[in-house]
Nucleic acid binder design. Structure first.
Length: 245
DNA sequence: CACCAGGCCGTGC
DNA sequence: GCACGGCATGGT
């Protein structure tokens, strides 16, 4: 099955892609990339980023077998994939996300690129590296409308280090929770979208609504070993009104 | 005016 | 351990 680009790129996993007339564009590894379909993904060498080798067919079948609501959520956007994003970029992105909406997160993400990132031409900018963002000050960020998240960004750039790839999810989570501005929800988003830990289930305000309404008393472990994918299916369906009793 | 958005932190109990 | 208010900003 082809990747659903809209569900995958514009559903709150990442904030770097722009869509125009069915063409999705972003800066990847220092160059501007445009794609329209799964063939373009392969042609541009983005198979890993789009997670093409993960057994989505198997995961979909299993999740859909669990409950009618989950089946409905899966059928809403079956081509949804979980991206393999850069850990640094995902960390900053989800620090921006707290108590915020996707539109404004995207806008703030854009401001970071234009202010601190490297130009790649055509008015586009790469996401700033840790070194580039470490030049930002709290006062400067506040002027750029980052609000109380400003201090978290400064701290993240100062104290950044990658999580060892072989560290078990629960220990990685503890490490993330020590960092300023990273709580349970942001940590889980970094684990899922930046480290591809499918055994995480980020609980934001939308997911709290989903769980209390459709799976009262349960948690993400109900969907093991595909918690993360299940979460994203439910998140999308709930936000766009695709779930009914 | 209120309340909400991919929440977290510090305080008080 | 848990509940609560404060926090920046922009949209409805």
């Amino acid at each position: 099955m082809d990747v659903d680009l809209k569900a995958t790129l514009c559903g709150g996993q990442c904030f770097s892609w722009k869509e125009k007339d069915g063409v999705y564009t972003a800066v990847m590894d220092g160059r501007l990339v445009s794609i329209r379909n799964t063939d373009d993904i392969r042609r541009e060498g983005l198979s890993r980023y789009f997670d093409l080798d993960y057994p989505y067919g198997e995961a979909r079948a299993y999740l859909a077998s669990l409950s009618s609501v989950m089946k409905q959520a899966v059928s809403y956007a079956p081509g949804l994939h979980i991206l393999n994003q850069d850990e640094w970029c995902a960390t900053i992105s989800f620090i921006l996300s707290q108590n915020n909406n996707i539109k404004r997160i995207t806008s703030l993400y854009d401001t970071l690129c234009r202010t601190y990132g490297t130009s790649v031409g055509d008015g586009s900018y790469a996401f700033p590296t840790q070194e580039q963002l470490s030049h930002a000050t709290e006062a400067e960020l506040r002027e750029l409308h980052f609000g109380y998240r400003s201090v978290y960004l400064v701290s993240a750039a100062e104290e950044w280090k990658p999580i060892p790839r072989d560290l078990p999810t629960e220990e990685a989570r503890k490490e993330l929770l020590r960092r300023k501005g990273i709580g349970p929800k942001v940590a889980d988003c970094i684990l899922l979208f930046g480290l591809h830990r499918m055994d995480t289930f980020p609980m934001d305000t939308w997911m709290k609504k989903v769980m209390s309404r459709f799976f009262p008393g349960k948690d993400g472990s109900l969907f093991a070993p595909y918690e993360g994918l299940a979460q994203q299916y439910l998140f999308q369906a709930m936000r766009e009104g695709g779930l009914s009793c």
